[in-house]
Computed example of a mutant assay.
Amino acid sequence: MIQHGDVVDAARLLRGGTFTALTGAGISTDSGIPDYRSPDSPPRNPMTYQQFVGDPDFRRHYWARNHVGWRHVHRTHPNEGHRVLADLEDRGIVRGVITQNVDLLHEDAGSRTVIDLHGRYDSVVCLSCGRTISRAHLAERLDALNPGFIESVLDGGTTVADVEVAPDADAVIARTSHFNPADCEFCGGVLKPEIVYFGENVPRERVERAFALVESADALLVAGTSLTVMSGLRFVRRAAKNGQPVVIVNRGETRGDPLATVKVDAGASETLAALAELL
């Protein structure tokens, strides 16, 4: 049975011990990055790994959109929720953060122990030779291959921030047929963001480190994720199986609600800020 509560109930449960934080897109909405599954989010159809690998047209469309969206995510800043978790780590209360986000805002806020479960938006890998390059370097190459593309998309005074941007640094653009994607400059292979796509598995070593981080703490705090995919839900299941208290903070239902010791139906940033004052 779900135990609905408020931030006072959450603080009472977490006070005096340590916890690991599991975060999702909902913690970054206050930084201007929309999420996929909040009650007010529009429907989306994220590209799958199979589509990206198997269809050059899908890859071109993805890189065109990402080329615009990357500029937006690159300019975002941590919000109060990110800063609170970093501060609680400094105070010895938070053991670390497992994040489903790829925006690096936890690191930017000062969190030291962060497991980027689904990868990082600032790195690109070649699927053939395995070399990695920075997303900033790729941006320079894409600019050279596509002079005037950004201006053609952001016409009429539109800014990058006005273009709909998804949590994986993607953006919604209709006009992508004239975009020229870049191949690996070392071997000519296919370049892919170092991000775990739908249909792709999180590296096992990363999952094991995340399980260890969960088990190193007295409790698990989930913030800003609906836990729709198993990659995050499995940590809630592990904590519940181990008898560790689970606090879930999220607007709307999550798949982990039946396992929650306390569920707070509220926004992540403001709830974390209030929680920190009570701990």
Rank of each mutant, 00 (worst) to 15 (best):
G199Q: 07
A166V: 10
P147W: 03
C126H: 05
T20N: 00
L127V: 06
Q3E: 04
Q3F: 05
R59K: 09
G110A: 07
L142Q: 03
E215T: 12
S269P: 09
P245L: 07
S269Q: 03
T23N: 12
L88T: 01
A210W: 01
M230I: 13
E107G: 13
T99C: 08
R91S: 03
D218S: 14
V8M: 06
I27K: 00
V94T: 09
D55G: 05
V84P: 00
G199S: 03
P43F: 01
H118T: 00
L138C: 11
R238L: 07
R12W: 05
T23C: 00
H61I: 12
L233T: 03
A212M: 05
L117G: 03
L278M: 14
R95S: 15
T113N: 15
A64M: 09
T113F: 10
S128L: 15
T48E: 09
G148N: 10
H4N: 14
G157R: 02
V53W: 00
D257C: 00
D40M: 08
A223L: 11
A268L: 13
P167Q: 09
N146M: 11
V163Q: 01
E200V: 09
T225G: 04
A268Y: 04
Q244A: 13
G156E: 02
A223E: 00
S38E: 00
Y121W: 08
P39A: 13
F198M: 11
R131Q: 14
R71C: 02
A139Y: 06
V262H: 04
E164Q: 11
V196W: 06
G5H: 06
Q100H: 11
G188D: 10
A25M: 05
V202Y: 10
L138T: 04
C126A: 04
H74R: 15
E194G: 14
A10T: 04
G110S: 07
S41C: 07
E208K: 14
R59F: 02
Y121S: 13
G189A: 11
V236H: 01
H82S: 02
R75S: 14
V214I: 15
A25C: 09
A182R: 00
I27R: 05
G32M: 08
L259S: 14
D257L: 02
G17A: 08
V165S: 13
G17Q: 06
C126K: 02
D30F: 03
G17Y: 08
V125Q: 01
